[in-house]
Every structure is written in structure tokens, then in C-alpha cells.
Nucleic acid binder design. Sequence first.
DNA 1: GATGAATGAGGCTTCATTCAT
DNA 2: TATGAATGAAGCCTCATTCAT
Lengths: 194, 194, 194, 194
Amino acid sequence: MTVLQGKGSEQMSMQSVAQEAGVSVGLIYRYFANKEDVLRSVIVGVLEDIEARVPAAILAAGEDPVDQVAAGFDAYCRVIAENSEAAVITYRESSRLSAENRTLIKDLEMGSVQPLGRATQEAVEAGLFAPVDVDLFAYNLVLLAHGWALKSWYFQPQHTVDSYIRGQLALVLSAALTPDHHIEYSRYLTAKED
Amino acid sequence: MTVLQGKGSEQMSMQSVAQEAGVSVGLIYRYFANKEDVLRSVIVGVLEDIEARVPAAILAAGEDPVDQVAAGFDAYCRVIAENSEAAVITYRESSRLSAENRTLIKDLEMGSVQPLGRATQEAVEAGLFAPVDVDLFAYNLVLLAHGWALKSWYFQPQHTVDSYIRGQLALVLSAALTPDHHIEYSRYLTAKED
Amino acid sequence: MTVLQGKGSEQMSMQSVAQEAGVSVGLIYRYFANKEDVLRSVIVGVLEDIEARVPAAILAAGEDPVDQVAAGFDAYCRVIAENSEAAVITYRESSRLSAENRTLIKDLEMGSVQPLGRATQEAVEAGLFAPVDVDLFAYNLVLLAHGWALKSWYFQPQHTVDSYIRGQLALVLSAALTPDHHIEYSRYLTAKED
Amino acid sequence: MTVLQGKGSEQMSMQSVAQEAGVSVGLIYRYFANKEDVLRSVIVGVLEDIEARVPAAILAAGEDPVDQVAAGFDAYCRVIAENSEAAVITYRESSRLSAENRTLIKDLEMGSVQPLGRATQEAVEAGLFAPVDVDLFAYNLVLLAHGWALKSWYFQPQHTVDSYIRGQLALVLSAALTPDHHIEYSRYLTAKED
DNA sequence: GATGAATGAGGCTTCATTCAT
DNA sequence: TATGAATGAAGCCTCATTCAT
């Protein structure tokens, strides 16, 4: 069942969560053991969404590692954008979780970096990317994706998700691509108007 | 006065803040109107630190815009690293502040991006940087600096602040520098062992 | 109907009572007006059991008042032992009942003392018992019977209901019997092994 | 400190406990970790009172074991009478305690029987008491003492604590004393008017 | 100035009760 | 009849805030 559709918002009191979900407080406790369980569920939900959609996007991008990185980042950003409230909750509330749940979330998040890391690694090995620090590069992709949710107030007026993704891809790919391949992938490097 | 030196930690109740600071609850209320005031003070403190040290570092970096960007980013990261608990609090607690205080913090943070933005702009105009999206580039610097505090659990074992700064500079500068100038600034682009 | 067979246990929430009884919560509310009604029913059930079996045991004991007292106490103890959970509930929950129901239960309990009181009275009048305080003596019998349920943790390892009854009878009858009749009723006064 | 002076009453909600004690809810949590802690403290308080006063009374009773039993029972009853609300709480709420605390209370209660048991034992060995089941006899004394609190509604109109103690002593001592010693201890055996 | 005992509103959670199926 | 999902009032507990000392 999908109590908790439009989770998020600002208030995280069980009363307000219930009200927003349009159910009673008591009903939440039929599906979740306690508040921490609700929180974990929301956060893990986003991470599972990422786990489902980012690898899929990479797979659908074909053989080219650069296309894979671009597609993976694109998908990551879109999941975050579609769940930006939940993404923000991750930063705001995860310190309230038990050590166990925090570990769970860390592990899932670290796992979510890996597909991007693998594509990056392949791009490096194929000579398409300069020999960048693969881990750092991949993690930056994740951080930039989160940035859209964390700093929406900063980007929102001037950017849409599309333009944000395009802009960030232009930056990060030009950081990584060897000069020889800039023209080949110029479709990612030119910031188009939106 | 310097009540609230090493606040931070995890607990943000006034009683635990007092205990950690080694003072009584009552004393905090002599210096701060209420909890929100304490929070704002902590957050604004970090931002003022940035406001003081990042421009100073840029100034000290000399005429070269690329050196300025590097020095500014370096300083930004170090302030965050020295106040990582407060930096995390910004993300965790700012949603609990009044609209007014949130606006104040946003303004300060947007202001903190500007020195980095100006240096970036100059680098572009001097032909040292490719024509990147200056705002986005500058904001990414800030986000990556915050990343050190937000994701310490991810980077900590393998990275020190120094290696983190070096690694990130290598990435972001190779993103921006035109191929012609890679050699000139190769000191930033090679990740050295630490 | 016999919803609520082996209620008891520790949990007294309607949901757990229902689960233990193997029925739905809703069904309980078809047979009982509310929780207090369930409670009263459980408690009254035990008292009615006593009201049915103690006089019957006394009747079956024949003419001898001492045998009647012994038989009555024996029966009282056995009803309590067979319903020890419900007996404990009486002590634990009766303060939650309405004044009206508490009065009802008091009256039933006072009534349950009477057959023991009458037999005691006859024993005194027949010169078998010393002139004890009949009310107190009879009530002690009830209290000692309850003691089996209330303090099972104290008696359980060393005593069975049988040995408990035998031991208590030995004590209370030797308290009451005049010295002249000790031998006549020595069958009650010697604690046998079990 | 003595928050919780006149504990007891009927209501055991923290709100009502606070109100009755004339303090705020919050203050209770400065002295007690949680509700269970309050409960345990009340119950243990009575048991410690017994532990203090019953042995003292026995000691003060002199060398005679029968006097000791009488004095011990007298003291036990008076502690219960002075704390009858707390004594009732023991029966009503101890099932809500953690296993650990229940064990603690059992142990204290079993300990509280011992002084009475020892005096009884001595009386038996001195040939003053018939060879009764010492454990059972001693425990009955405790149960009868509790009886005053548990069944106050039954005894109250006709009995004071004094007359209750006198009446019970007459019963239990005549149960135990060998016929030879009835006259010697007749001061305990005759129920006087009150 | 400095303390920390005291307060009580507000948040989490349980559970008696209802009602649509 | 029988079910069990849904409700929401009430209880436990925390913690921002005050104030007598």
C-alpha cells in the first residue's frame, strides 16, 4: 500500500505526516513500526529508485562509456528532482536514525555510486577520459545531483532540471574528456539555451 | 564572547549544547534570545568566516585568476573542514529557522559564491578558462567544499582535506582550463601522493 | 457463547485479547459493550464459578462442619487455580472499573465468603472450633485461596495446588480446632508428602 | 528529595501523579528515568520500609520467639497500613514492570518474609509452636498483612488496623501454638473489644 | 553575572472503538 | 455474522524557556 505518497514537506512530526498523507496517525503505525521506520522507508525508497533507474539508464545508453556516464548522471538527477523533498530529508534527518539504519543508508548510497564509477572507469580505460580520480569523479556526479535538491533555492529561477543536467554535464565531461575527444562529444559540451 | 565554541556534535537540545559548552542553560539565554538565535549564530558564524577568509585568500593569490580560483576553493574547503559540524548543521537545521533567517543565510551563502565567481569570470575573460557557465562552475566549487563535511563518512578513510582539495582542484580546473593552458597549470592537475 | 476462553496472559489490550481468543476485535464488540464489560465478565465469571462450586462442595461434604470448611476451601482454591489469570486480573484491573461494577464485584466476593462463614459458624457452635472471629477466619480462607494465584511465583516450585491446599488446611484448621478435636481431624492436620 | 510523597491514589498516569504530587510532569523526569522507574521506586520504598522496621520490631521484642512473631507481624501490618496505596500498586502495576524489576521486587519481598520465618522457626524449635510448615506460616503472615490493604473495603467498617492485627494474631498464633502454651500467650489469643 | 530546578506545550505512540465490506 | 482497516483521544516523554537564588 502506498500511504505516504507525497511524503516530504517541511514538517516531519507524525501528526503532520499523517495529515499530509490524508490518513490518521494511527494508520501510519499499521505500516511502520515507528517514526524512524517511516524516515528510513522514505530515504531507502529514493535510493532504491536510484538503484533501479540509474543502471537501467546506463544499460540503455549503449556501448559508449561517455554516453553511459551522461545517461547515468541524467537519470540520477531526475530521480533526485522527482523526489527532492525526500532527498533533502536524507540530509536533514539521517542523523536522527539509529547507527544501524545510518549504515544501511550509507551502504545503499555508496552502492548507487558504483554504476557511475564503472562507466567512468571504462571511459578512462578506453582513452576517452583523461586519467581522472575515478572515485572522486563519480562521487562528484552524485553530489551534483543532490545539489539540485539541496540548493534548489539557488538554481531554481534560472534553471530547469534539464538545463541543470545539461550545464553540469558540460562542466564535468569537459573536465574529464581528453582534448582529442571534445569534438566527438560536443553534443554534451555546448550549453544550449532552454 | 565565545560561549559556543565546539558546539556541533549530534545533540542540538539546549541542555546538551550548554553541557558541551561547559556553561549553564541560563547563560546561553543571556547571550542568545532563543534556540533559533543560537542556530543562526552558528550558521552565520561559518558564513562570516568564509566571507573573511575566502576573499583574503584570493587577494593573497596574486593576479592570476586561476591561482585565485584555486586559492579561493582551498580556503573555502578549509573553513568547512574546520567547522564541519556547523556546516552539517546548516543543512540539518536551516529548515527549522524562520523564513527571515533562512533568507539571511541564503543571501550570505550566495554572497560567499561571488568571490569565486569573479575569479572564474576573470579566468574566462583572460582566455585561461573555456567559456564555462560561470555561476554553475562557482557554485559547484561551493558544493564540493560542502561535500567534504556532508560526506565525510564517504571520503574520510582515503582522503585528508589536503588530498581532497588537491583531487577536486585537479578535476574542476581540468574541466575549465582550455587545453592550451593545461601545461601552464599542471601543478594543479597532477594528483600527487600525500 | 464462549469467546474469551483462555484470555488471561499479560496483555489486556482488546487487540491482543482478540488475537489470543482467535477472533477479530469486531466480534468481541458484538458480545461485549466495551472493554470494561469484558473485564467485568471475566471477573464475574470466576466469582460465579466460585458461587457454583464452593456451596456444592460444602453440600457434598456431608453434615460435619469441619469437613465442610475443608471442602469449601478446597473448592475455592481449585477454582482460583484453574482461573489464576482471571483471579490476578481481578486485583490488577478492578480499580479501572466503574464504581458500579466495583460494587457488583465486591458484593459477589462478599457473597462468596458466606458459605465458608456459615460452615465455620456451625463448627464453632458445635464446639469443634474454638470461638474464633468467624468473619475474619472465613475471609482468611478466601485470601489464602487468592494467595495461590497472587503469589504463584513464590509457591510454585515447591508446591502444587494439592500440597498448597493441604498445607494451608493444616494451618488454618489447627488454628481453629479446639485441642480436643485435633485427633479426630488429624487427617487435615498432617502435611503429607506429594 | 521527596517528590512523590503521597503517591498512590487510583490514577497512575504521569499527569495525575504529577498533579497529586503538586509538581510538573517534567520535574518527575528529573528524578526518575521513566514511569517504570517511578513505579519501582514506590514499590521498593515500601519493601525497604518493611526491611527496616520488621527486623527492628523483632529485635525490640526480646528473646521470646512468639513475641517476636507477634511484633514482626504487627510491624509488617503497620507499614502496609501506612502505605496501603503503594501496597495496592504493587499488586496492580508490578505486571507492567520489566522482568528485571519484577525479579528485584520478588527478591525483596521474599527477603521480607525471612525475619518472620526465622522467628517462627525458633518458636518451633523451642517447642512453643507445633511443627508447622514454617515457610507457609511465615508467608501467610505477609499475605494477611497485605490483606489489610488489598481488602480494606471488606474490613474497613468493622476493623481498625489495631483490631485487625489483634484478630489475625489470635488466629494465626492459636494455629501454631501448642496447646500447652495457649495460656502463657493468652494475651495474644483473646480478641478484645476496640 | 551565573546557575540549574522547574514548567508545560508539543511530539511520539498505543489502543479502545467504529464501520465499511 | 465476522472481519480488520481506520480513527483519534490519551498517555509517556522531551526539551525550549523561565526565574528564584
